[in-house]
Design a protein around this nucleic acid. Structure first.
Lengths: 129, 129
DNA sequence: GCTCAAATGGTACTTTAGTATGAACGATTT
DNA sequence: AAATCGTTCATACTAAAGTACCATTTGAGC
């Protein structure tokens, strides 16, 4: 509402430009506030989507669980349905390294399997659903 | 835009109620169109969310891929991160049966692994993301 | 009664996943 | 300089997942 009031004050300068038609003026107001509504809607939805990750919480969760960059790389590809060998090829590392990272990941996520790790990671907002 | 024009026409009746202040009038327009923006935003988002599942599309996808009830049961538990043995226990069947269902599932979903099956199933709206 | 598909269970096998442990290297911190 | 940490790779093993084929049962439909 504060934004709306501020907008009204600013727009009141229309009296300085009396040569534009009233309808055009109203149209401009309508457009501006339609845009405002769209923007507000987006903001509300962003908060809803981030309810599990709390805004910039992705980084916070990563830090709190002490997850490294490489482990995140593996996790993302894992969630895409790739096998350890395919992940290794994409990251230009050996399958052994992938296993090391994934094994460490399971410990940090308290998961027994990769499917469980993926599910938990999505729950806490570590990766996109 | 058609909606906006129609709105303008309707609101022009302000000339019949000259006793309300200009600021109040502007405020009303602002509120109405902010609401319009919110509504439009919601509509756009609903279409996005239903892009993969298309309303009642879940059943349609299941039928088109010829997926049975039991296979769906297995798929859902699979996506929750359960092992074949845990799925077997929950459905009161043997692990052999779970393997049969999951193997058939992979064929129908063109997946090589369970993680890939889960990812694809979510993409096409078979299961909730 | 017969047929067909889904569901169930099994054996046997190959492949992938996962664990445990150790080691080497570079960058950073103390 | 020494210690720490992340990344890398490896071996050796166990466990789980997945495939292929086959068999039985059951319920719905003809």
């Amino acid at each position: 509402m504060a934004v709306i009031v501020a907008g009204l004050k600013a727009i009141e300068y229309r009296f300085l430009i009396k040569d534009i038609g009233t309808e055009i003026y109203i149209g401009l107001i309508a457009l501006v506030f339609t845009g405002l509504g769209l923007w507000v809607g987006q903001q509300i939805l962003n908060r809803k989507e981030q309810s599990g990750s709390s805004k910039k919480g992705r980084d916070e969760v990563i830090q709190s669980l002490d997850i490294s960059e490489r482990e995140m790389d593996v996790l993302v590809l894992m969630a895409d349905g790739l096998s350890n060998q395919e992940i290794a090829d994409k990251l230009f590392i050996s399958i052994h390294t992938v296993k090391t990272h994934s094994s460490n990941l399971f410990s940090k996520l308290h998961a027994k399997r990769r499917t469980q790790a993926i599910q938990k990671a999505k729950e806490i907002g570590l990766i996109e659903a």
